[in-house]
Every structure is written in C-alpha cells, then in structure tokens.
C-alpha cells in the first residue's frame, strides 16, 4: 500500500522527467555554455576571466543593430501577412463545396516541403531572369531582365518573405481551419437571426474564436523567421544580414577570438526572443479578453 502511494507520488515526475532532462541538458546546457563563452569563459582558447567586454562590443556595433532591425522586420512582416492571408483562405475553405477536399490538400501542400526547396522554387520564379520575368518578356512587358522588379538579393527581402509566406500561410491556415471545424455553424446562425451582416458575423463571432489559435501559431512563425539561417543566406543581401547569419558567421570565423562575440549575440537574441514572447502573450491575453 505504502509502495503504491509512493508510485502514485512519483508518477508525474517520472512521466515528465525524460523530456525535461533531455531539454535541460541539450538546450539549457547549450545555452549555459554559450552564456559562459559570451562572458569570456572559453577554456579552449585559454580564457577564463569573466567580462562584459563582448556584450559591449556587440552593443556598440551598428552592424548588430542593423541586423537586429532587419531580422525583426522580416519576422514581423512575414508573420502579420501570413496570419491575414491564412484567415482569409481558411474562411473560404471552411465552406463545404464540391472539391473542397482537393483544395484543402492543395492548401496543405507546402507544409511538409523543406524550406530549402521552397527557397529554390521561389528564386526560379521571381528572380529578374526567373519564370515570371520570362513570361513578362514573352508578353512584351519587359525587354531585359533588369526591367523586372527586384525581388531576390534585395534590401527589403521580398523573396525571403515570399518563401515564408508560401510555407507559413498553410501552417496557420490549417490551425484556423481546425478551430473553425470545431465551431460548427450554430454561432453564426444565431448571429444571423440577430441580424448581423457577413462582416459583423466574422468580426464579432468567428474572429474571437480563431484569434487564440492565430496568435499562438503566429508566435511560432515569428520565432521561426526570427531564427532562420538558410533562407536569408540564400536569398538576401550580403549586408545587412539577419542576426543568426551574422552570429554564425562570427562563430565560424577561423579567428576563435570572435566566438565570444558570436555567443554574446546569440544570448542577446535569446533574451529578445523570450521577452517578445512574454510581451506577446500579455498582449494576446489582453486582446482576447477585450
């Protein structure tokens, strides 16, 4: 009997222990080592003295802030536009019509496709000599490639954002669809009988229902874009580049003394990501409640 209650007590800790242990060792362990290096504790190059030098190096460098701003702007724009488009498409797809299963499948198509493949596809489509430009040439809209709008290797990062849109709209959309499927038609019916028009039904009935789902998937999307490496590396301008690219470039520099700086950047990136999450959750709570 005693044994059973002990088992009962240990049940939850035993269930969560493996996952928590792995994440703590791998993720928080890695983070701690990174924090140590960013503070100058780097035995591999014989450096043991703790210092904030690397943080002040990073924080006084304008390159860092340009990268931070670019990373933030790309993440924010991709997230907002993905969310809006996803809601729009989900509203269409939730209706039942002939072929809706086919269209839902097409909508989901890009979810499993690796980002690298998506990036290659987008370049082939929208570069100044890409397929769209060639169609424009065939139609007589442009004469030479440079007449075509610049979307790849550009400062605004249009191709980068298109890649994320193509990947993330379905991701958010599928979650919204799932929520809408759970809602059923009765709420709207009631609203309709109360005389609400289509916009009002969407704004006051459906939107509040799907908002929590949209908000938390958009956090995931934001975090994903915020931490992306390959896409800005392949499709972006060389300067300024995103923070993960910048940090990794410093990390991989044969000059090992740049490592602590790379780590300081990463730690700042981590703090910003967590802070943004906290602020976002606050705002989301406020938005959903009101």
């Amino acid at each position: 009997m005693r044994f059973l209650t002990l088992m009962e007590k240990l049940r939850v800790p035993l269930m969560i222990f493996p996952a928590v242990a792995l994440i703590c060792v791998l993720f928080f362990g890695g983070l701690t080592v990174g924090l140590g290096q960013s503070l100058g504790y780097f035995p591999a190059i014989g450096s043991y003295n703790l210092t904030f030098q690397y943080y002040s190096d990073v924080l006084t460098d304008s390159t860092f802030f340009e990268s931070l701003w670019l990373t933030f702007r790309l993440a924010l724009l991709s997230t907002v536009s993905s969310s809006v488009l996803a809601i729009g498409i989900a509203m269409v797809l939730r209706q039942s019509f002939k072929g809706s299963r086919f269209f839902t499948f097409m909508f989901q198509l890009s979810i499993p496709i690796p980002h690298l493949v998506a990036a290659a596809g987008i370049v082939l489509l929208v570069s100044q000599s890409g397929l769209t430009a060639r169609i424009a040439y065939a139609l007589g809209l442009i004469n030479v490639p440079r007449d075509f709008p610049v979307m790849v290797f550009d400062r605004p990062g249009i191709a980068i954002q298109l890649t994320y849109l193509w990947k993330e709209v379905p991701f958010i959309g599928v979650v919204v669809l799932a929520v809408l499927q759970g809602v059923g038609p009765q709420y709207e019916e009631i609203a309709r009988t109360l005389g609400a028009n289509a916009w009002q039904r969407f704004r006051y009935v459906l939107l509040p229902l799907i908002m929590p789902g949209v908000l938390s998937t958009s956090i995931i999307v934001f975090a994903y874009v915020f931490s992306s490496y390959e896409i800005p590396l392949l499709l972006g301008v060389r300067y300024p580049t995103t923070l993960p690219v910048l940090a990794f470039k410093n990390y991989q520099d044969p000059d090992l003394s740049l490592r602590p700086q790379a780590m300081a950047m990463s730690i700042i990136l981590t703090v910003i990501a967590v802070l943004l999450l906290v602020i976002y959750k606050r705002l989301a709570k406020y938005a959903v409640n009101s």
Binding site: I23, F27, G30, G34, I220, S227, F248, S266, I267, T270
Partner: peptide, 20 residues
C-alpha cells in the same frame, strides 16, 4: 521549460552544445 526551445533560435543552443 519545454516551450522555450520553440521560441529561441535553434542555432543558439547548437553553437553552445557544439563545444561540449
């Protein structure tokens, strides 16, 4: 604890764990 790795760039923890 279990959600933070979704938010924090994977490259950060990877660079740290690399040395270990």
């Amino acid at each position: 604890l279990l959600m933070v790795p979704i938010i924090v760039p994977g490259i950060v923890a990877t660079m740290g764990i690399h040395q270990v």
